[in-house]
Nucleic acid binder design. Structure first.
Lengths: 343, 343
DNA sequence: TTTGTTTGCGTAACCGATTGCCTTGATGGA
DNA sequence: TCCATCAAGGCAATCGGTTACGCAAACAAA
């Protein structure tokens, strides 16, 4: 408990018979200070156990050197890799990051946004929750000129920088693949179509059907929350359908896995009776049997691109074109869960 | 970019013809300020769009009202629930949290610790990485009187507050369960025994064997990193053993799942040929087939307990007894992967 | 020698909130 | 009437860096 007094630049200044401003500059590596002096300062700092006071600095500079990250969940390999990508860039550029997750709740997201706002982050990277409607809770950032970059889960209509994959194309591709495998009655299990990613995948699904002359049947579209329960429910619904669907496209690997398991428990064979495609390329897809065909989502790259844009802007290296959308490449990974035809 | 001037307490003071000190006290709800005045202040603040300046406040108060959380990974349901538990308590008590993850790397952990130290967190909650040896990188906190609470992955020999489960007992219990199911040659797949959790589980495993008169065979102990690769390797090693093991205890669900899958691919039946028990009660255990017997780990409670202890101490409501260890209840969850005998 | 230019560093005014100590007017009791 | 007490606020120093501006010395050019 006996907190020793903190060492300040004044202590260093006194020790070296310099002024505090010289010490401050020296610590920042300012070249107007003689190199020798700078080295003496750095060493004295180390010797005395000086630690930079972020508050004093932020207070004076009106900058925090911190980027806020708002995500819709924490525990998926996709998000983990996005975070890794962001961290890679921010650690290179010397920014700190503050992570907040909304657990898919709009209220929590808004609360997180407010909190980060009060913490005065210099910029924000965000992926919207499932329930989020509108971007009013981010307006405060805009008003203060704090740049925001959205990724993955975005608001399409908004004027803002977005880093996404081509969800339409991926949805199309997944569906086309099922059709190529001979499927004719393809179920789509997805979440709230308000959210761009699900909306686009849905459109891709629809168009692929249309282009192949397969009628769209709204009974085949199951809107759920992509939870464990959802996978079970979807399976039960599928089983009851007459005629039985012969293919299913899930917009998330986890629910696909749960559903697959439930279907198997009810005696269905995969992919023979029903072919399955997921989305996200989660680790789980390689563990279940049969292994899951899915859409690979380059999380790390998304994170890097988003962070790079933001930090470049913050450092004045480039300007954010406010309406730019960056599309990252995504691919279909074919595994056994969808292979009706031998390859 | 046209950053409007920030509103400060001086602006509020001017508007209401009060002094800044009165405004400051009013915003804090200090009762020496007349209730009416306080209300006028609060309203003016809202009206002007005032936001509290954390830096100025922290600078002056020498407190950040922030707790650092260092964890060894991000993406497991266990950690997610720990974080949820911590968040529950900290949001109740008005603390902010800063999350940093080490990805099981000692260097990153030390870097994170240093970073949080520089950010001047008021307290720290930490779970050590697999590679961590010693607690020297946390000494700086101790020296400044900043309290640290460790959870799950701890350094047993150290004088510090720890929140853990009874790993010895869980290891014993898991092994005993396999023995009860008729297993006689039980493999243990685990990680670096330096880390307390793995060491204790290993001891429990050994003692359970001993108490049942089963000789301990060091060839049956596979030390790995609990990655995907590890699960595959373990399976291949198990298959080659003569006589083949009839039971396996993994100290992590993920590697158990991967191993199970690999074993099945090689034609082994689970649990008939080999019974399997995991650890952690990850979601994955319910999805694979057969479902995985495992040790349930009450993450949320651990987080809550750790956070409660820390905040209570910080708020002066209690003193941390520096050598106290809090043990949280854990349980064996029996599923099909280990049930050789019908129940 | 005189008049620029650099180089290298010091002065002092911030940044915004907090808080120990004071002041003022009101109230009460003796 | 006089002093003590109290309620309600104000004054000003403080937290630790940052930075616009200033100033002296040294050196070069004229």
């Amino acid at each position: 408990m006996e907190t020793k007094k903190e060492v300040t630049i004044y202590d260093i200044a006194q020790k070296l018979a310099l002024s505090s401003s010289t010490v401050s500059r020296g610590l920042q590596g300012n070249p107007t200070i003689n190199l020798k002096t700078r080295e003496r300062i750095q060493e004295a700092a180390r010797e005395l156990g000086y630690r930079h006071n972020t508050f004093a600095s932020s207070l004076r500079k009106q900058k925090t050197n911190t980027i806020g990250v708002i995500i819709h969940e924490l525990s998926s390999s996709f998000i983990t890799s996005v975070l890794a990508g962001i961290e890679k860039v921010t650690s290179e550029t010397g920014y700190d990051i503050l992570i907040a997750h909304s657990s898919e709740s709009f209220e929590k997201e808004a609360a997180n946004a407010l909190n980060l706002f009060h913490k005065r982050v210099d910029g924000l990277i965000a992926s919207l929750s499932l329930q989020t409607k509108g971007l009013d809770h981010f307006k405060q950032f805009e008003e203060k000129g704090i740049p925001v970059v959205y990724f993955d889960r975005v608001e399409e209509k908004s004027d803002s920088v977005k880093v996404v994959i081509d969800n339409y194309r991926s949805g199309y591709q997944a569906t086309q693949h099922l059709i190529d495998q001979g499927c004719e009655r393809i179920v789509l299990v997805t979440a709230n179509l308000q959210r761009n990613v699900y909306d686009q995948r849905h459109k891709g699904y629809k168009d692929a059907l249309f282009d192949n002359g397969i009628p769209f049947n709204s009974k085949y579209v199951l809107i759920k929350d992509l939870s464990e329960q959802c996978g079970i429910e979807a399976a039960l619904q599928i089983i009851k359908m007459r005629p039985m669907p012969d293919g299913a496209f899930f917009t998330n690997d986890f629910s696909a896995a749960v559903c697959m398991k439930t279907l198997k428990e009810h005696g269905l064979r995969i992919p023979e009776d029903i072919a399955i495609v997921g989305f996200n390329n989660d680790t789980i897809g390689k563990i279940i049997e049969p292994q899951l065909t899915t859409i690979n989502y380059p999380g790390s790259e998304m994170g890097e691109v988003a962070a790079r844009h933001l930090t470049n802007h913050l450092r004045g290296l480039s300007t954010l074109d406010n309406t730019s959308t960056i599309v990252i490449q995504s691919d279909l990974i074919i595994r056994k869960s969808s292979l009706k035809k031998a390859t």
